[in-house]
Design a protein around this nucleic acid. Structure first.
Length: 423
RNA sequence: GUGAGUGUCGCCCAGCGGUUCAAGGCGCCAGGUUGUGGCCCUGGAGAACGAGGGUUCGAAUCCCUCCACUCACCCCA
């Protein structure tokens, strides 16, 4: 902590630096995710970190908390209303419409990694900037596609090696059958208004579906025996849901239907699902998604059904740690080059470059530290080999190759070093 | 936005009104070998104790305000 005149800057609230020592978790997750996508035929898309603010009020829903109080919205110098993206689906749909991706064979399958921004009070597993991996399959309403998307999510977590997860499923109907269900639901809740928590009282008017997933204990008891959306589906939605469950059965996925799963974004229709870790802290969701059959049309495209999934990488990593999953380290340079004296340093500079050109990772000692200090550094860096060049070696055209794992070393001709390191 | 807890060297943390109040561990640097690591030993650098104000003869230790962090609610990844 330096005081004085200089102000000490900190990363803004709810953001964080990902230091080198943490990176292996990130690379691990990204690699597994990208591999899974490749396996299922999903292609990567990248989109801007900010969008026109209207895109989100239009898609996520004006009555949702994200839009209501969590968006980073500002006016840029040109007077445009800009929002730092709070999620990825809206952007993908925008891109789908904007670039006419309906001309591709349907469904179009896309995945992304993106930073998303939500103005919230940070806590465990919740940040103002976090990183999502997600994917979408656009242009088909076949329940087999739902099954694929759900299966893919489940397989991703399998490949990551996170144990004790559950897969929760529900169907919340479409614009034909949902209004009827909502009416029944409100009617049911009308009898319990006085027993609801204050949040639920306001939800009753604004977003009755959300009454179902309240964490308050007494509200839960009321929600437990509330009318179930799945019982009020129209013919098509009911058929869709039962087909989906059958396919998931074929895939032997251990899903559980929970009629209280509703999700917080307005665009969802029919299928909604979540992957949840064993209860631990307050973050009960590690990933989730669902179908959004009206969204593309809502954004100005042709009526186009779609389904997607998203997961928070920070939450995945939290779970990897709490479940003590073994994550492989990142590769690092093989060789450290130590030198003593000016001539030796010249030699070391040339040699480092030559080895790197041959594809051998090298960390070159800088400064003029003692050999002891240089080897100590080599040791903490964890390299397998140290190459030592002193004046004697320069004169004789050799180097000392030291095996750091067993402390054996030998002098070898400079010209033979590369070949020795490669074997 | 609401509630609770915390804030001492890069990290972990002792001290909880005064008499070494700034301790210890890790890490870092150096020495113990004149050109050699990991173990061990020795030494060193690094903190005016989140910021500002107050109480007091005296505060890191008490009070107030602010800030930050953490956890929880809301909501979600």
């Amino acid at each position: 902590m330096k005081s004085g005149e200089t102000r000490l800057y900190q990363a803004p609230r709810g953001t964080s630096d990902i230091l080198p020592q943490e990176q292996y978790y990130w690379r691990y997750v990204e690699t597994k995710a990208a591999n899974t996508c490749q396996l299922y035929g999903y292609e990567r898309i990248d989109f801007p970190a900010f969008e026109d603010a209207g895109l989100f009020t239009r898609s996520i829903g004006a009555e949702t908390d994200i839009v209501d109080k969590e968006m980073y919205t500002f006016e840029d110098r040109g007077g445009n209303k800009i929002t730092l993206i709070p999620e990825g689906t809206a952007s993908i749909c925008r891109a789908y419409v904007e670039h006419g991706l309906h001309n591709l064979p349907q469904p179009v399958k896309l995945y992304y990694f993106a930073s998303v921004f939500r103005y919230e009070r940070p806590q465990a597993g919740r940040y103002r900037q976090h990183h999502q991996f997600g994917y979408e399959a656009i242009g088909d309403d076949d329940p087999a596609l739902d099954a694929e998307v759900i299966n893919m999510a489940w397989q991703l977590f399998q490949s990551l090696g996170i144990p004790r997860l559950s897969l929760i499923l529900n169907s919340i109907g479409c614009k034909i059958c949902r209004p009827g269900y909502l009416a029944v639901l409100k009617n049911y809740y009308a009898n319990y208004v006085n027993e609801l928590c204050s949040d639920c009282k306001t939800r009753l008017g604004r977003n009755p579906l959300r009454l179902l997933d309240c964490k308050n204990l007494s509200c839960q008891q009321i929600a437990d025996v509330a009318p179930k959306s799945a019982d009020y589906l129209c013919q098509e939605c009911a058929e869709h849901f039962s087909q989906l469950k059958r396919y998931l059965g074929l895939l032997e996925l251990p899903f559980v239907v929970n009629h209280r799963l509703v999700r917080g974004l307005d665009y969802y229709t029919r299928t909604v699902f979540e992957v949840q870790p064993e209860a631990e802290g307050s973050q009960s969701t590690i990933g989730g998604g669902g179908r959004y059959d009206n969204l593309i049309e809502e954004l100005g495209g042709k009526p186009t059904p779609a389904i997607g999934f998203a997961t928070g990488i920070e939450r995945i990593i939290l779970n990897l740690k709490s479940q003590q999953v073994l994550v492989p380290p990142l590769p690092k340079p093989e060789v450290f080059i130590a030198h003593l004296g000016n001539d030796a340093r010249d030699e070391a500079i040339k040699l480092s470059f030559k080895l790197r050109q041959a594809g051998i990772g090298v960390i070159e000692s800088t400064g003029s530290k003692s050999l002891k200090a240089q080897l100590r550094q080599a040791n903490t860096l964890g390299v397998n080999h140290a190459v030592i060049i002193g004046d004697q070696e320069v004169k004789s055209g050799t180097v000392i190759l030291r095996d750091m794992t067993n402390a054996r070393q030998e002098a070898i001709p400079l010209a033979r070093l590369e070949e020795r390191l490669k074997q």
